[in-house]
Computed example of a mutant assay.
Amino acid sequence: MARQDEVILEMKDVKVHFHLDEGVLKAVDGIDLRIKRGKTLGIVGESGCGKSVTSQALLRIVPKPGEVEGEIMLYRSGKGKEEGIDLIQLDPRGKEVRDIRGGEIAMIFQEPMKAFSPIHTIGNQIMEAILLHATQDKEEAYRLGVEILRKVGMSNPEQRMGEYPHQLSGGMRQRAMIAMALSCNPSILIADEPTTALDVTVQAQVLQLINDLKANNETSVIFITHDLGVIAEMSDDVAVMYLGKVVEYTDVDTLFHGPKHPYTRALLNSIPAIGRETKRLESIEGTVPFPMNLPKGCGFYSRCKQAVDGVCNIADVPLVEAAEGHYVRCLLVKTESTEPEVRA
């Protein structure tokens, strides 16, 4: 269990619900996570599991009619003690959360072409963040913008400052997005599938860049992806999400060598591996259910090959500690305690 002074952000029973005419869409349905200082938490799962909505809740940018409940505590170091602030209690459009957003918590969005404004230059958009959080001197902001572009490996950064997003390649846009996120030295960096649209060579460069910047700046990273290969390389701890809930949480080595939840095992069995017997890779039949008006029981029940009728579909399943530091949401897993809590 992490000591409190190692924790920089803590989520307690966080829910993101969208109240629609058809009913309540539960995109995130009660998750508990702790982010350690200078470490990487990987969040993995299929599309539609609630990973990106979780990151939006952290930044208080969940679109309407979404409502965020629970507690998201950001801990700041200062004056010899920890000062905690609940982000959910802040006005999403207020000055305090705007100072945090981009300043203390920054995000690399999944698709830079959509995240960048197409009618403003890369330099204008990076300078806007710097002027808001670091300095009001435009010449200094320009110099810092060029410096951060050079730091992320952008060729000819002075020229790139005056170019528009459509003039850059996919890898360059992703580097520019990382540069904008890191321009104000955030304490927490959220990377939402930052390498999805990149070829394997550029992907490796971007992942190495994030690791180098984390090591040099002691930045905490929340890495969101559906790629378990990337999770193995990047993460210290891993939370596996399914249908808006965390179904398994542990350190990365334990997850890959001793997964306990059937969903996690199915994900791992779908990964190609050198030396594995030549046969078809395992696939998870079906898709993630639509998170509205769900029946009682385990959310993975309809797709689980080990599901037991009359056991797994009777009541909602709590997240319990199956082993020290290893939390699982499954009634078929033997546990050491029954406390429904995640502790990183």
Rank of each mutant, 00 (worst) to 15 (best):
V200F: 01
D309Y: 00
L144T: 01
V311A: 07
L294W: 00
I178K: 08
Q174N: 09
Q56S: 13
Q306D: 15
K214V: 03
L268P: 00
G66I: 10
V152T: 11
G45Y: 02
L33E: 01
G48V: 07
R175W: 14
F256H: 08
L331H: 12
G153V: 00
G299V: 01
T338L: 09
M172H: 13
S220F: 02
L41N: 05
D29M: 08
K138H: 08
H226F: 10
G42F: 03
G70M: 07
E147F: 00
V328A: 12
E193K: 02
F223R: 06
L268T: 10
L268N: 04
P63W: 10
P63N: 09
V62R: 06
V97T: 11
G244I: 03
E128Q: 11
K260D: 05
P157T: 04
E324H: 14
H226M: 04
L131S: 07
L168H: 12
G275N: 11
M161C: 09
N293A: 13
E22A: 15
I88W: 06
Y249P: 00
G229Q: 09
M73P: 00
Q4D: 13
A273K: 14
K81Y: 13
A191D: 02
D21N: 13
A239F: 06
D32H: 13
I105M: 13
A2N: 07
V206Y: 00
D309Q: 14
A191R: 03
L149C: 09
V7M: 06
Y301Q: 08
V247W: 04
L332I: 13
L207E: 01
G162W: 07
G325P: 14
I88T: 04
K39P: 01
E158D: 14
V28Y: 06
G94K: 09
A315Y: 12
V53E: 01
Q89A: 10
Q306R: 14
T225P: 01
V62I: 13
G50C: 12
E96Y: 01
K245N: 08
G38I: 07
F256P: 06
A239V: 06
T250E: 10
V202Y: 13
R143L: 02
I122M: 14
G103R: 05
Q159A: 12
L33N: 05
L25E: 03
V252G: 05
Y301L: 03
L20K: 14
A57W: 03
I231D: 05
L58M: 15
A322W: 11
L207N: 02
G171H: 12
I148N: 05
C312M: 06
Q205Y: 08
D192L: 08
D29G: 04
P92H: 08
G171L: 07
L209C: 04
E10K: 15
E163T: 14
A266P: 04
